[in-house]
Design a protein around this nucleic acid. Structure first.
Lengths: 206, 206, 206, 206
DNA sequence: GATGAATGAGTCTTCATTCAT
DNA sequence: CATGAATGAAGACTCATTCAT
């Protein structure tokens, strides 16, 4: 096992434990036992326990940014309706959270309210997502698909809150991995629930 | 200061610290300093640090149950529309969270992912709220105000997620206390956003 | 044992161990075993191991300042000769080092070259002593008892080096406590050795 | 770089670090970084960290012995006065310490009070020097240049203490390397200071 | 009941040393 | 011989809890 692999291995084991027991209830002793390595090895790859935890969150955050910025294939703003675009966004967000339910649990539950350093990282993440949603909503307003009167900040928080909870509930609590097909169904239900209050009734939206 | 008052005082001081720094970042030393009492005194009123924290959450939980079960004055199911009832529910939920932003922060952020014992308490609380919403939604289905096709569990999670986030964002992050009338405005905006997707279009609903 | 006594007790035990084995070879475990106290108790009185060590040196340093500034009874500059004054100085310096041979060992040997923080403390102490001697020598120059040509800085270092070594050798290495009269004898021998090179041959000096 | 050179190189780098930061504050990691070698390489040439440190001291000690035992050219006991001989001794001692101010710092400060093994080595070195001085002084007594009453042990300690301090002060603290010329001046000043108390007033001494 | 000094189990972290490549 | 990843013993420090006063 080379350096890169070993680091990944430690992160993998730590992730499982942090997700299951939280930051403070996970000891270095647990991690090295899980990873079957010596105590000092952890410190060869990570400055300390904080660094290990932050690396996990940071990598998840970065993979989200990468995922979000991907050229999204068939989708282009002209060819689809506003709701279609919205559906696509929700689907991809769920897809991302579903892709790593342990990190999903860590980011949405376990890393919260633990330490100011972690908190600011998490808040940065949440802020980024909310900004992303806000931008989408403002774009919708520009294209007259969304009412000028919509409180974008509030709506973004509502959507983020709903998505976070759904992700946590369906990908963590109901651990059984959902199939891609289920994500589609979840998406449809969310659209049915949220689109009517969001989009102006336009002939071309349906 | 009598026993009852002293216990309340300790809880009050602990609440502030837990809300600000979280469970593990708040030491008994901080609490006794804040409360200006001796170290041993805490243990006269609470079995241990866990007990202190749990008492806070438990009392918040109980006050929520009490608040929820209050005879709600002018409201009765016959005299108001389904949306009116929904509005009333949201308004009261926000009102409750707004009444104690420190506990709001603790329950919605700081107590999460800390320890299995706290977690199960929090989850019980969340579950209760979700059940409450689910019951309302099912009632709406019975009265044909809400589609039979609605996935109640999912909708309840969406609503709970949205409400939790709004409460956290507006009553904790944007610390400036909202006036009663702000709650009304928040409520209206939430209704405008969520009602269209929830209720069947019925003439008598508006 | 009250707080003050206990702190003294810990310092006393730590002093013995530091003097015998040095800073790094003395563990907190050794200190608590010697002092028959619990691990945490040390940290009730001292911030950390450094603080404990520094406190020892600092107190020794302060007691030296106090000792040096004492009104020295019978001695006054007019009534005694320059050599008499010099004798008195040497005698008191030896008396001081002899009063606590463990601290003498710590300050003259064990605390040296350990850590920059300790080093600067020790150097401050050494500097103070050398300045003290320099001042005396310059006073002697003013009164024409000492040659204008004397390199005061060098002479002060010679005297300090000699005194430190004698103190270390006679009060630490040859552990057997010297009697007061031995200090007198040592003083006489040192005077005989050092005075001729220091003082100008003046009728009134003898 | 062959084996011999590499060993020298490691010693050289270690010396600089030990001199600057002391034994415990210098890690193997620092040494290999400084020497640009691999961790394991150190252990190819030295049994352990102790061995490395001891080797440094030992070599310094041996080079001193070699330096001291050198046929001292023009000097011979008959051709020069007692003071001349004394001057020569001091000059050469200073010359030696000045030749390697890093080792001077290590031996006179950094290696002291660290570990019993190092201590005994240092003490052996100090003892050797003091014995050397003592022998000289006794020789002086035989030749009636020095009083029979002189406490040789004490005088040797005084001289050693003075020389060690001067060496440390002038060759380490005042880092600026002294020229050979400066050593001569230092020597003269030391002679002027110490000779009068040491030597009997004899016509042929001046 | 109140106090706060004492306790010690529990954890993180360091760092010299080893050994397979 | 050189390498450097892995090791794990050792040690400092924390902090909830207790208990004698």
């Amino acid at each position: 096992m080379n350096a890169e692999e070993r680091k990944k291995h430690i992160l993998h084991c730590a992730k499982r434990l942090f997700s299951r027991h939280g930051y403070y209830q996970t000891q270095i002793a647990d991690i090295i036992q899980e990873a079957k390595i010596a105590r000092g090895t952890v410190y060869q790859y990570f400055k300390n326990k904080d660094d290990l935890f932050i690396t996990l969150i940071d990598e998840f955050y970065k993979s989200w940014e990468k995922f979000i910025s991907l050229p999204e294939g068939a989708i282009n703003a002209n060819s689809i309706s506003a709701v279609g675009y919205f559906r696509h966004r929700i689907q991809r967000t769920l897809l991302f959270f579903e892709s790593d339910n342990e990190m999903c649990n860590i980011v949405l539950r376990m890393a919260i309210g633990i330490q100011s350093e972690f908190d600011s990282l998490i808040k940065k993440f949440e802020r980024k997502i909310i900004n992303f949603i806000s931008d989408d909503l403002r774009l919708g307003q520009q294209f007259k698909n969304i009412s000028e009167d919509l409180d974008v900040e509030l709506a973004a928080n509502v959507l983020a809150g709903a998505l976070f909870r759904i992700a946590y509930q369906y990908f963590v609590v109901l651990k059984s991995r959902k199939e891609a097909h289920d994500i589609d169904r979840l998406t449809e239900k969310l659209i049915a629930l949220l689109a009517p209050g969001l989009f102006l009734p336009q002939p071309e939206n349906r």
